[in-house]
Amino acid sequence: MATDAALRRLLRLHRTEIAVAVDSAFPLLHALADHDVVPEDKFQETLHLKEKEGCPQAFHALLSWLLTQDSTAILDFWRVLFKDYNLERYGRLQPILDSFPKDVDLSQPRKGRKPPAVPKALVPPPRLPTKRKASEEARAAAPAALTPRGTASPGSQLKAKPPKKPESSAEQQRLPLGNGIQTMSASVQRAVAMSSGDVPGARGAVEGILIQQVFESGGSKKCIQVGGEFYTPSKFEDSGSGKNKARSSSGPKPLVRAKGAQGAAPGGGEARLGQQGSVPAPLALPSDPQLHQKNEDECAVCRDGGELICCDGCPRAFHLACLSPPLREIPSGTWRCSSCLQATVQEVQPRAEEPRPQEPPVETPLPPGLRSAGEEVRGPPGEPLAGMDTTLVYKHLPAPPSAAPLPGLDSSALHPLLCVGPEGQQNLAPGARCGVCGDGTDVLRCTHCAAAFHWRCHFPAGTSRPGTGLRCRSCSGDVTPAPVEGVLAPSPARLAPGPAKDDTASHEPALH
């Protein structure tokens, strides 16, 4: 009773807030009518008042009428009001819900409408889902798969039609296919003929059939049928067999079959498995989609049935006599038709004709302190090069084509190399640097090759510096006499390219 009084008091307290929050009759008014909170006449009256005075006034009048009803109607109103779709449509209802007392429970059932309790003993237990329907569909599909699609060729003596089998029958139906081979029951999904010589313990000319048996419980189990008994694959494991010639990621696949039913060829011909030897223990289905393919039931050349050999690369099948050149017997292992072999060759040939990528240039590290003349020119003028003790990398590039010797140069053309002071002394051009340390401070000019250098860098042994005729380390061993002091540049003949010694390969005349 306390809860009923509290709900009535809360409705009177929030009546105006609810009326202002509800700006549309749908969905709240319609939901109240659906849950029998508002009768039909009051529903029509509220809609009429909404058209006349507006939605807030109409709902305020409806809530005032609701306060005169019993506690069950008020409880049902609060339940409908706080439904998710009403809270989404009328956003101003959320503060009312947040301020609702926590001790007021809106989930209690309506009085007088409590459903009768059902004894637990009368409640049926839930049924577990079964796979009976899938099993029945598999039974119905198996006879259809064994139905012949056409008439065999005159040369083929193997013609068999499976008798119709009602689904209610649980007995196995067997077809006489000759040579002791028996087909599987209607619940078998796949059958492959297997030679009895590969099964340990088999006697006589009995041949087993590799099947997948579907049981009534819905589970499946792969086994071997020899005669009327089934054997699990673990009985046929043979770890010492060295003649297993397995197909790549293979499961067994029928390579020879008669049109209309699988079996042995007439005249004692023995149908073979995809792999010879003992049956392997793992009978998992292969991951290669080509091995799941269903080959055609007629020859791809003459479009006739009979004894066919199936290609492992495509769905086509052929007569042995229709092949070019014809085959006398079934080859062992994987067999592919000429079209598949030709496609494989065409895929391999473009790969062989692809040009080989060019090898990157060989990189040879230079000892610290040495650099090529090109690196000396590329440096920024007026700045010493940083990191001189790091190992430089010199790339061996292809030799350029031989060019004509340089033409003779006048001494005026070499004027930018040297600057003559007032006393006739050779001065260095701006930006000249030593080729060893890279520093341009207090550098000297070689009178023979006009290269800038430090005496301490080229002659670290402490050799005394002569007063005139300074030469760098590369030119100090040259027998050519030094030019007379005061000459602007060496003779043009000295600039012609010539053979250089091994220790002077990195010091070429550089223009500054």
Rank of each mutant, 00 (worst) to 15 (best):
L7Q: 04
R8D: 04
R9H: 02
L10E: 00
L10C: 00
R12F: 00
H14R: 00
I18F: 02
A21L: 01
A25R: 03
P27Q: 03
L28Q: 05
H30E: 03
A31G: 02
A31D: 08
L32R: 01
D34R: 00
H35R: 01
D36C: 00
P39W: 04
E40N: 00
E40T: 00
D41A: 15
K42N: 10
E45W: 12
E45L: 03
E51D: 08
C55F: 08
P56D: 01
P56E: 00
H60L: 01
L62Y: 02
L63I: 05
W65D: 00
L66V: 02
T68Y: 04
W78H: 03
V80M: 05
F82S: 04
Y85V: 03
R89S: 15
Y90W: 01
L93N: 04
I96Y: 02
I96L: 05
S99L: 05
K102T: 13
D105L: 06
D105R: 04
D105S: 01
Q108S: 05
P109I: 06
P109K: 02
K111E: 07
K111C: 14
A117Q: 14
V118R: 04
P119N: 10
K120F: 10
K120H: 09
A121D: 08
V123D: 11
P124F: 14
P125Q: 07
R127H: 03
P129F: 04
K133Y: 01
K133I: 01
E136I: 07
A144W: 15
L146E: 08
L146F: 08
S156I: 14
P162E: 03
P163M: 08
P166R: 09
E167D: 11
E171C: 15
Q172D: 12
Q172N: 06
R174T: 05
L175R: 11
G178Y: 15
G178Q: 03
G180L: 02
I181V: 07
S187H: 13
A191Q: 04
A191G: 09
M194E: 05
M194K: 05
S196I: 06
S196K: 07
G197F: 08
D198I: 09
D198H: 08
G201P: 05
R203H: 02
A205H: 15
A205T: 12
A205C: 10
G208F: 01
L210G: 05
F215M: 02
V226G: 07
G228D: 11
E229A: 01
F230M: 07
P233K: 03
S239W: 14
S241I: 11
S248M: 10
S249F: 06
G251Q: 04
K253A: 13
K253L: 06
P254K: 06
V256Y: 14
R257N: 00
A258P: 13
G260A: 07
G263C: 06
A265D: 07
A265M: 15
G268I: 12
G268W: 15
A271Q: 06
A271R: 06
L273T: 07
